[in-house]
Amino acid sequence: MVVLVVATTKDPASIGPAAAFLAMPGWSPGPPIAEGMESFTNGNVRLLKHEHSIIEEDNLDQRWQEATGEPVSEVIFLSKHTAVSNRPALTVHPIGVPHLRDDETPPHGGTPGWAAIPNPRIGPLLRLMQKIAAEQGLVPEFEITLEATHHYKHAHHVLRKGLGLEDGNAVGSWQGNSEKVLLGIGGGHYAPRHMDIVNKDGVWVGHLLSGYSLPMETPSQINGKTSGEVAGMWKHSIKVSYEATKAAFPGGEVIAHLDH
């Protein structure tokens, strides 16, 4: 089993970290899986570079296995991050758009109503980024944070563990302190209150569903009184995210942390 790291030459925040990877010793050229793609190997890590948007190439794990015979255990996507605040940030997040209906088109890729199995490295990677950022004097200028579950067309059929690792300035292992797994429900896209739980208790990180991933429809009213359940995709979003989180951490205790 190999780890597939995906970068795009169209994104400086993707190709920069890829170049840093390749500057390390031990790399050798690998086989291309399609025209316009390059690959490199180092131990059980495979770095794949392509020339398209990070959300345009689909099924890269399956395509890699078909081309090389190597099964892929996890996929890590390197990409830029853009925020309305324009504050520099380094973020990591699970992948999926579980809140969308089948007839909706995801604006940034993905399969409607679907959530990837969250990568168990999300928590350890976040804590490692926090440590390095502090040592390099990037804090508080840079925000080091989780993002809510969102996007990536690549993961259309990725049933293995996937995550997005994003650089907001256009630049493990299963180590944890408990067997509890966080399923974040509610709050904003950057999940500050969910972050508090991750940092304080050292829990694993599962899916994080911000408020917009919990769409609710007002139930009907009869004679001025509410009748029926609250409709919308919120229940489905929680269900598939819980199931994916549970699958990523067999034997772990899933803890729902609610924000607003």
Rank of each mutant, 00 (worst) to 15 (best):
D102L: 07
A191V: 13
E56V: 01
P31F: 02
T41P: 00
A115E: 02
S220A: 15
A13Y: 12
W27Q: 05
A231W: 01
N86Q: 14
V92F: 09
G36C: 09
L159I: 05
P250G: 05
T68K: 13
H194Y: 00
P12M: 07
H189F: 10
I197S: 12
L146Y: 07
I15G: 01
E253P: 02
M195N: 10
S178P: 02
H150T: 04
K153V: 00
W204D: 07
V240S: 02
P29K: 12
N177V: 03
A19F: 04
P94E: 04
L47I: 03
A247R: 05
H99S: 10
I54S: 12
N199Q: 14
V230F: 11
S28L: 05
G137C: 09
G211S: 12
A148F: 03
K200V: 00
V97S: 09
L209D: 03
L182H: 04
V203D: 12
R46K: 13
R63K: 15
V254C: 06
P118V: 04
W234A: 10
E147A: 04
H81F: 07
I185S: 01
K235H: 14
H260R: 13
D201Q: 11
E217A: 14
P29T: 03
E141Y: 10
H99I: 02
H50P: 03
E74K: 15
R101T: 06
G43C: 01
F77A: 14
N42V: 00
H257M: 04
A34L: 09
I197Q: 14
T41Y: 05
G228N: 07
E57I: 08
E70Q: 14
Q62C: 06
L90K: 12
I55K: 14
E253G: 01
G69K: 09
V205W: 00
V75H: 06
K225L: 15
A89G: 10
I132N: 11
S227Q: 12
L182M: 11
V6N: 03
P215V: 01
N44P: 04
K200N: 10
Q65I: 00
I15M: 10
A19K: 13
G123K: 07
V75R: 04
A256K: 11
K239G: 02
K246V: 07
V6A: 08
S85C: 05
G137S: 10
L182A: 07
K235N: 11
T8Q: 05
L163S: 08
S237C: 06
A231N: 10
V72L: 02
T245K: 06
P17Y: 11
L90M: 15
A256G: 03
H189V: 09
G188C: 06
G69F: 08
H99C: 04
E217T: 12
V230R: 09
P17S: 05
A115G: 02
G187D: 06
T9W: 15
D201K: 09
S79N: 07
G109N: 06
T245F: 00
E51T: 12
F40S: 10
E141P: 04
Q136S: 12
S237T: 03
A13D: 07
I255Y: 11
S213M: 15
S39I: 04
T91C: 14
K161D: 11
P140H: 08
G109A: 05
A67L: 05
